[in-house]
Design a binder for these strands. Sequence first.
DNA 1: GGCCGTCTTTACGGATTCTTGATGCCGGAG
DNA 2: CTCCGGCATCAAGAATCCGTAAAGACGGCC
Lengths: 232, 232
Amino acid sequence: MTGERILVVDDEAAICRALSAGLKARGYDVATAATGTEALAEAAGTSPAVVILDLGLPDIDGIEVCRRLRQWSDVPVIVLTAEGGDERKVLALDEGADDYVTKPFSMPELLARVRVALRHHAMRPTGPDDAVLEVGDVRIDLGSRSVEVGGRAVDLTPKEFGFLALLARYPGRVLTHRAILQEVWGPGYGTETHYLRVYANQIRNKLDDDREAPRLVSDAGVGYRLVARGVT
Amino acid sequence: MTGERILVVDDEAAICRALSAGLKARGYDVATAATGTEALAEAAGTSPAVVILDLGLPDIDGIEVCRRLRQWSDVPVIVLTAEGGDERKVLALDEGADDYVTKPFSMPELLARVRVALRHHAMRPTGPDDAVLEVGDVRIDLGSRSVEVGGRAVDLTPKEFGFLALLARYPGRVLTHRAILQEVWGPGYGTETHYLRVYANQIRNKLDDDREAPRLVSDAGVGYRLVARGVT
DNA sequence: GGCCGTCTTTACGGATTCTTGATGCCGGAG
DNA sequence: CTCCGGCATCAAGAATCCGTAAAGACGGCC
């Protein structure tokens, strides 16, 4: 098969089959998973271009799957579920899902949404799922959520890691206060720029950053960016 | 603090109002348009971060609006409509829409989808925020917010950078005092032309500009413009 | 219940940036 | 020639932003 790889996650075999058939007919390469753990393993192993995810999984909650996926990958996730509750919907979207379709769904529509997801995927910043980011001597492993600088392991808290990993995805580029807050802390944050000062400081301490030429640069009134050591 | 700008396009005033209220309550900056031509003009003029588009417009078909928008902009478009037909849905998504919500819709869900759109837009590599502008020997990197003239790095304050970057976006063209003030200082400013003299002077100093043939030219009584060195 | 790591909040000093006022220059209008 | 408006320049006070430390709040874990 030459098409993009799509991972279908659903515990009902009938739906899995129906989706697979429809997707394969359009030339996609389909993999399936029936449980959350299976889905995460599959995603890590085969790095699909799109994930179609049912929320009603037997082992892990679907939203939790989405959250874990987002920790190391930005593969587009289309949630597909029977539950119609607003809350779940909003939660899923805020936790990293890119789209949300309720059953019963129409196959043409789903296919169109898959195409949208692939379109987004195609114009992504860093190449295909890079689980390890490197900026200068800072090495960030998104899979194991570990960081080392110059070979020395550094232990960061979740928020610190999110902050640093976000900046590392766009090396040298300024990310605004607002963008960082909304991505790391979640929507609804956007004005608490004070958190950023506290965390930037903590990160600089842990990275053993030079105060005169820090790797984590702050642009007054705008935001922060991460640069290789010694570079502007 | 003013949030992201969102353009709402709908010919029913009631819906427009409802959407505006909900969005403004979340801190967004909302513009509205009731027709397709209006929408396209508004989008070109104010470059919103997201467009919410009703398909049932009086003049141009919504999908056509979407298509034309895509010819020069990659702003996320969320289609919002009463029509439930699959074909229209698929067509809209394939013509560049990023999401499709059918009425009646739930406000929390729509807001969540707006957040998804903003997330995508913010993380875009080659957005309008990533260009490198060059005017003569002045090089302006909008991504890292750095400036260099003739290879020498120049460090500007946020307002100085905003001033210079704005002029550089329209090389050789005059921007009026009012236009510059409103763009860099924000709406509500427009008469404080004195700021411009101070900042124009500071910028000229930092660029090491020749007083006889400055790169940053002031047109008496009108405004300022940026030209390549030695050119009128 | 007590312990511990993490997140949130408060406080303050110092540096940068923005604003504002004063002064001098120049060219055009009266 | 003199006055006046717009511009350039300088300088100082005000406001803002950043860095830093440390204490309180919260939640998970034993």
